[in-house]
Design a protein around this nucleic acid. Sequence first.
DNA 1: AGTCTATTCGCAACTTAGTTGCAAATAAAA
DNA 2: TTTTATTTGCAACTAAGTTGCGAATAGACT
Lengths: 141, 141
Amino acid sequence: MSPAQEQAARTLLETASLRRTRPRLLVLQSLLQASYPVTQEQIAEQLGDKSPNKVTIYRTLEALCTAGVVHKAFLQDRTWHFEPAHNCSEHQCHPHFTCIACGQTTCLMDMQVPAVKSTHNGYTIHRQRMQLEGLCPNCSC
Amino acid sequence: MSPAQEQAARTLLETASLRRTRPRLLVLQSLLQASYPVTQEQIAEQLGDKSPNKVTIYRTLEALCTAGVVHKAFLQDRTWHFEPAHNCSEHQCHPHFTCIACGQTTCLMDMQVPAVKSTHNGYTIHRQRMQLEGLCPNCSC
DNA sequence: AGTCTATTCGCAACTTAGTTGCAAATAAAA
DNA sequence: TTTTATTTGCAACTAAGTTGCGAATAGACT
Ligand SMILES: [Mn+2]
Ligand SMILES: [Mn+2]
Ligand SMILES: [Zn+2]
Ligand SMILES: [Zn+2]
């Protein structure tokens, strides 16, 4: 973990008005250095010996989500995958692509998805999530 | 359950090359008469005394999904919601809207969502799911 | 109609992501 | 340094979905 990321984690906690605790700094750094959304288990694995307790990771993720610093990106195999919210706008997150062959999920930051109107027949739309399935470049062969 | 729906259920089973058993007919009829995606538990509840065993409902839904007659519409609260596939195209399902106030989910059959291209930077896209969150007409007040 | 067999069903036991209650530890304010 | 509200870790729990296996049955064949 780079010093820059450690600093970023501290700043995010301050932004969120959350106490600067060891578990929170570790979880945030783990999220920041990942290049795709990760699960509680992946975070724990990545942190190894230093990892906080499972319950603490979940509670930290929940607090960060409530503060808007982290998003629940998608639910896959009944498991939530989390990512920093810094690349998403308020209403529209980038699409996520899951390969049905290798299981790998990718953030399609460069794909243009037209945002739906914020209202539709009386519905007020706060958030839009796009989930794509198919074959990744590797598995398309 | 109308006789028409009973007939529709029989036809769908035939289409899917699945044996016409009591549990399968019941599950299919329950799906057909629902106006939104439903869970295993909702199906069991709706069928009441006549409901097949929980495991049988899951296995039936799985078989119907494999046959393409039913779709897993979305995962909510770690629970799959199923619906007949008859209103979806091969690649694009209609968007689903969940109200964050009352929890109700609606199929937005009339919303135009531009289908993403079937390829993107080497990714081959087979299926696209759009999930919307916000306030339903009732709760927008 | 009766027989046969591959398929399907029901039950009990299991798996696992996520949650809850509570006592011990600690961040940060005083 | 002291104090206290907040946070953490542990153990036990919850609940959707799965698995193994013996019993039941759809549908083919006589
Ligand atoms: Mn992403
Ligand atoms: Mn639908
Ligand atoms: Zn792949
Ligand atoms: Zn509502």
